[in-house]
Design a binder for these strands. Structure first.
Lengths: 183, 183
DNA sequence: ACGCCAAATGTGAGTGACTCACATTCGAGC
DNA sequence: GCTCGAATGTGAGTCACTCACATTTGGCGT
């Protein structure tokens, strides 16, 4: 739905940069969408044409299909929970964000604000559904599939938001989280 | 912070009833706080004196200490994830709302709205912290403790919001979810 | 280079959640 | 009944977000 032309891409980039900048300097809540827009050289209206909510500037995650595929590729005779766990571990390499620095800034901003944490959970709901659907297609009961996906995703999200050691890369934190779930 | 006198308790009850009523009939988003307040015979201002946000009318969970205690009571030599899982299963009996038709209404309203689901997660964050703190006190690394708590809570929340069979009681749904995590 | 035209952006007005400073009313105890 | 504090009301304001409509701009073919 947001604009996609090269010009629009540039505008979008300026908005993200301006937003991260202001959020880091003066906090998320203390920053208005109008300020972000002005710093990016546009109006509030344009801000909302590119992002449906203020949250959306820092919350995004287009990894759903990759992860769901990786889960589907795990042995079908494993219990669903273990299948999701291994699938997410396997997908880690592909999802690894090359341009880690922006991702790190986003994680830091999100971790500092409860409302943003909630927004992240809302966003992961679509990933949860994608994983669950894949399992259901293999005959796993819907409830079991949803629960397994939610547990693994919840663990990863919690790990990312709780991480304190800045030297460990994001992927390492996630891997560690999934290993904690190994019984 | 909200008022606590008998009179205020009655007002609070009227607000909850009016809110559930309107949310069920015309949807959460389509209902304004002013409408809820009016239906409860009160002004919007008073609504916000009793509930910090519109969400708060349907989202609450005062179970933290009970669950954390139950987790702490599990054998210390278990891996943290298994300890949380068994602790939550053990706490189920105590937390089980005996008569709660209101709880069922709330779950239904929340399940129907993405923003409310996010709000629930925000609320469970304090429970997550309570459980994690208990494990950390026994020497479990913070990251591992947080991840274990988040996985189990995420699983339970997902199960409650995904449940379709209205005949199964809430406690049964949660028990089933925790069993899915048994490896 | 030039101009066309759709896509991108701006304007202005509006709604709803939430807040604050201050005035008013109600109800439990004397 | 009266009083004092808690509970509620008033009015005005901020900010996220939306809509209908006017305007500009950049990528495209020629």
């Amino acid at each position: 739905m947001p604009p996609t032309s090269p010009r629009a891409q540039r505008t979008r980039g300026r908005i993200v940069d301006a937003a991260l900048d202001l959020f880091e300097r003066q906090g998320y809540d203390a920053t208005t969408t109008t300020q972000v827009a002005a710093a990016a050289g546009v109006t509030q209206m344009t801000f909302f044409r590119h992002f449906p909510t203020k949250d959306a500037v820092v919350v995004s995650d287009p990894y759903d299909p990759l992860i769901a595929d990786a889960v589907g590729a795990q042995p079908r005779d494993l219990p669903p929970f273990e299948r999701v766990r291994r699938g997410m571990l396997a997908a880690l390499g592909d999802v690894a964000p090359a341009d880690d620095t922006t991702a790190l800034r986003r994680v830091a901003v999100v971790a500092a604000n409860p409302r943003l944490r909630a927004a992240v959970v809302l966003a992961t709901a679509t990933t949860e559904r994608a994983i669950a659907d894949r399992l259901v297609a293999d005959g796993v009961p819907r409830l079991d599939a949803t629960v397994a996906a939610a547990a693994c995703l919840g663990a990863c999200t919690a790990a990312l938001l709780a991480r304190t050691d800045a030297r460990v890369p994001l992927a390492g934190t996630v891997a560690r989280a999934l290993e904690v779930l190994d019984a």
